[in-house]
Structure formats: structure tokens, C-alpha cells
């Protein structure tokens, strides 16, 4: 009796994806961006705004094509810096979070340091690192590392703490070893939290990498924008801005894609 009502409830709550929904999710943003740029283009042409100060969309979008090799080259440098710093951040933050949760004294001892480092603006270490390492991609990698390290650490901490202690009663009655509990319960259970941290981390990392390249690099989109600024090449600066946004979009997409791939159980909105 209740079994059939249960089944009905399940049918009602299981979402049925709209056909071609993903297509609309591309069309609408493209449309709104197109309208905004179109309005800008018309305003620039009608109101005679000095183009050396505020370039037209058609000008800086054209630079993306004419200077493709230059921009793509710098975007590649920025992307590798970003990926390296981000991966290092995750690789350090997740095991550290686990260690902190496992060893209480570690939590007491390390927490003040972590809080201090977290509230400190990460870019201030840039000038110090320039003295230590010179103008090198290492400085940017390190700043990106710092930028995404903390959000991943904080969310991983809550992930490892999120397991209901009564679940351990059940695994202990199964005779699970520490390693089995880790493998079957704790790590997969905390993945949702780790991904939440990574999603915040990647946004901060994009910001971090550009600022780092402003102050301490000889390649990358940040460097390219800074150099274009010294030549008053505003169209290239805007093209760089667009390229940075596109790069951020790609990284976000990769992260969301791997989330769906690795965690098929997560309820899709």
C-alpha cells in the first residue's frame, strides 16, 4: 500500500531534463551579451566617443582575430600558471584538511596561522617574492596557490567533519578498518565539499593570476594588458580582458564537467 505511494512520490521528485535545455543555456547568455555589445557599438558610432579612450566592440573583438597568435600565446602561459597553482593548492589543501581533522592538536596549533594567512591579501607577498625569485612564473604560481588554497582548505575541513558519527557505528559493526572507512565513506563523502571549495578557488585563482602577472612576469595575459597599457593600446587591453574572461569560463567549465563526471550522484538543478 505505502509501497505504491512511495513509488509515486519517487516518480514525482525525479527531475526530467528538458530536451535541448543545454542549448538554451548557451543561446540566452550569447543573446544578452550580443545585445549589450551591440548597444555599445551603436552608442560609440552615434555619439562620437573618442575611440582612443573607449574602443568600439568591433575594434577590440577584431584584435582577438588579428592578434590571435599573440593573445593565444599569452593566454597559454596564464592558463598553465593558473592550472599549476590551482592543482598545487588542491593537492596541499585536501590532505592538510584531513590531517587537521584527524589530529586535534594540529587543529589548535595551525588554526591561528591559517586564519592569519587567509585574511592577509595574497598579492602583498608578490614584491617579496620578486626579490627572492626574480621576475619568474614561480611568483605567479605561488600567488595562485595561495589564492585557491584557503577556500579549498576550509571547505574540505567541513567536508571531512560532515560525516554523521552514527555512520561510524555502522561501519565499525561491519568491521571496517580506518583505511576502508576513508575509502568508502570519508573521501567520497567529502568530495561535494571539496568541489564547492574548488569552485570558489578557481574564481579567486583567475583574479590572482592576472594581478600576479601585472606585478611580476614577462609573459601571460596580465603582462600583455600591462604592456598594452604603457602603449595606450586600449583595443588590445579590452581584447585581453575578453580573453581572460573566456579563459575563466573554460576553467569553470572544466571544473563543472569533472564534477558531473566524478559525482554523478549530485542532484542537478
Amino acid at each position: 500500500m505505502a509501497t505504491t505511494t512511495d513509488a509515486a512520490a519517487v516518480m514525482a521528485t525525479t527531475p526530467r531534463p528538458l530536451k535541448g535545455a543545454w542549448l538554451w543555456s548557451l543561446v540566452f547568455p550569447a543573446l544578452s551579451v550580443g545585445v549589450a555589445l551591440g548597444a555599445w557599438e551603436i552608442a560609440a558610432r552615434v555619439y562620437d566617443i573618442p575611440l582612443w579612450l573607449v574602443p568600439k566592440p568591433s575594434d577590440f573583438l577584431a584584435r582577438l582575430v588579428t592578434d590571435f597568435r599573440l593573445i593565444a600565446g599569452h593566454a597559454w602561459v596564464t592558463s598553465t600558471t593558473l592550472a599549476l597553482g590551482f592543482l598545487l593548492g588542491v593537492l596541499f589543501a585536501v590532505p592538510l584538511a584531513f590531517a587537521i581533522v584527524s589530529v586535534r592538536t594540529l587543529e589548535r596549533g595551525l588554526f591561528p596561522v591559517i586564519v592569519f594567512l587567509n585574511i592577509m591579501p595574497k598579492t602583498v607577498v608578490g614584491p617579496i617574492f620578486i626579490i627572492w625569485f626574480g621576475i619568474s612564473p614561480l611568483v605567479s604560481v605561488f600567488i595562485v596557490f595561495l589564492m585557491c588554497f584557503f577556500p579549498v582548505l576550509v571547505d574540505s575541513l567541513s567536508g571531512f567533519k560532515a560525516v554523521d558519527p552514527r555512520l561510524y557505528h555502522i561501519t565499525r559493526s561491519m568491521g571496517a578498518s580506518e583505511l576502508q572507512t576513508l575509502r568508502y565513506v570519508r573521501i567520497p563523502g567529502s568530495m561535494r565539499y571539496i568541489f564547492a571549495g574548488m569552485k570558489i578557488g578557481i574564481v579567486k585563482a583567475v583574479e590572482g593570476v592576472i594581478i600576479a602577472e601585472f606585478i611580476a612576469s614577462s609573459a601571460g595575459l596580465g603582462f600583455m594588458i600591462m604592456r598594452a597599457s604603457s602603449f595606450m593600446d586600449l583595443t588590445l587591453m579590452f581584447a585581453g580582458l575578453i580573453a581572460t574572461a573566456l579563459m575563466a569560463l573554460v576553467f569553470n567549465g572544466l571544473l563543472l564537467g569533472s564534477e558531473r563526471l566524478l559525482m554523478p550522484w549530485v542532484r542537478q538543478p
Binding site: D164, L167, I170, S173, G189, M191
Partner: peptide, 11 residues
């Protein structure tokens, strides 16, 4: 063992 909450693994 069965508790009041199902305690199933969400993943």
C-alpha cells in the same frame, strides 16, 4: 543496525 535517520551514503 538501523537508526532513525537512514544514514545511507548519498554517493
Amino acid at each position: 543496525i538501523v537508526f532513525q535517520d537512514h544514514l545511507l551514503l548519498e554517493f
